[in-house]
Amino acid sequence: MIKLVDVSKHFGLHYALKDINLEVPTGQKLVIIGPSGSGKSTLIRCINMLEKPSSGQVIIDDVDLTAHRAPIAKVRQEVAMVFQQFNLYPHKTVLENVSLAPIVVSGVSKEQATESALKYLERVGLSAKADQYPAQLSGGQQQRVAIARALNMHPKIMLFDEPTSALDPEMIQEVLEVIIGLADSGITMLVVTHEMGFAKEAADRVIFVDEGHIIEDGTPEHFFENPQHDRTKLFLSKILR
């Protein structure tokens, strides 16, 4: 269970998030939509404390990450993130990318981490690339490796920060299919995306963020067919022609 209580984040005078209250039950697939600069990336980055909220609380399974001396690194082992720019480790092979953190951070044995890494690489269809370096892969392949890297931490929560925004159009689908394939895994998933088709297909719940506020919150059906807020209607009219 993820709980955000009155979370605000400002950069100087600019508020990226303002008094956000959000509860995400375990296992939910939440899609976060909003125009650029709306604060949706900041929102998701507050959940693993890559951005420290200016005020408010971020609570994951009863652990308050905003408390003094909170065990942030420990919680991050269970909260995996997939980035827009993939951020694979370029000096490590694909296999090492996927197995490094379990070995170094979680203390899993090398054999075990390698075995599970190969399993997850298989799952994203890239076991043949295990010994290559990230630079030798396409963008779509790199992002699938990044998903395998996240999965190999055996996370309870996965955060996707615009996972397909940096990809060529023909590679978006292969990445989305991998993410959709995780939907029945029981992992809590938060996905910031502009892919409306993905939101309809995979989400249990959609929230719409604008100017640092959550202004729409409901099922995908509610969001796409019966949005309440004018801002949401305007956004949808532009995006769904």
Binding site: A73, R76, Q77, M81, L88, Y89, V104, V105, M153
Partner: peptide
């Protein structure tokens, strides 16, 4: 991005 990726996996700053 490299720093953020590592931190997000639970690496310490020194790690």
């Amino acid at each position: 991005g490299q720093l953020e990726a590592a931190l997000s996996q639970g690496f310490s700053y020194v790690g």
